[in-house]
Amino acid sequence: MPDILEQAIKSLAIQEVRLRNTNINFADEIAPLDIKNKKLEVQVIHGVEKIQTHHLQEGESDWLEYNFFYKAGVRLVDVDSKETPLIEIQAVFNALYRTEKQLEKAALEAFSENHVGYHVWPYWREYVQSTCMRLGIKPIRVPLYRVKTK
């Protein structure tokens, strides 16, 4: 399996990261100032949802674009009630990579486990922090991205 992952790492060149869609929910019964008085737990989800392939031709070169859809979410839950989240922020980003050769599905899946998140995570952290400011709440601290080692 490491050979397959190495093939993807050497072949895929990141082109850009785009925000694809987002969803923000702020519980109606909570005012931004009320959050300061609550004991909160932060819950995080993230991962690649799907991968799309596009064939491109620029001049005399043929390229493949791999578009990874990376979903990330964070929510604040009242530790005492554990009911519906007080705040929930979710986003889907597109991480767009180019290569000159077709990659196996296993190589793309191995690459998506750590490397796509590594490229998307700074955009996600900035998005959460700026969204919190717009909501009038203290920024939720999204931790730095950690590459999983086996």
Score class of each variant (00 low, 15 high):
54 H>D: 10
47 G>S: 03
99 T>I: 06
61 S>I: 11
39 K>M: 06
58 E>Y: 12
68 F>A: 10
31 A>N: 13
82 K>H: 07
105 K>M: 08
39 K>S: 13
73 G>P: 07
85 P>N: 11
93 F>S: 03
37 N>W: 00
66 Y>I: 01
107 A>I: 00
49 E>I: 13
103 L>D: 01
97 Y>H: 00
86 L>Y: 06
29 E>A: 00
59 G>N: 08
94 N>G: 10
73 G>C: 09
83 E>F: 05
45 I>T: 14
69 F>D: 13
44 V>C: 11
46 H>M: 14
108 L>D: 05
101 K>Q: 15
52 Q>V: 09
47 G>V: 07
79 V>G: 03
68 F>E: 10
107 A>R: 02
76 L>N: 01
66 Y>N: 07
51 I>V: 15
106 A>N: 11
101 K>F: 10
50 K>E: 14
44 V>Q: 15
104 E>L: 10
46 H>F: 14
93 F>T: 03
42 V>F: 10
75 R>T: 03
42 V>G: 05
62 D>H: 07
99 T>N: 02
37 N>H: 09
53 T>V: 11
63 W>Q: 06
106 A>K: 15
81 S>F: 05
82 K>V: 08
33 L>D: 15
52 Q>G: 02
94 N>Y: 08
96 L>F: 06
82 K>M: 12
31 A>C: 08
61 S>E: 14
82 K>I: 03
102 Q>C: 11
91 A>K: 06
36 K>L: 11
35 I>A: 01
88 E>D: 09
94 N>S: 12
68 F>V: 10
29 E>P: 01
32 P>T: 05
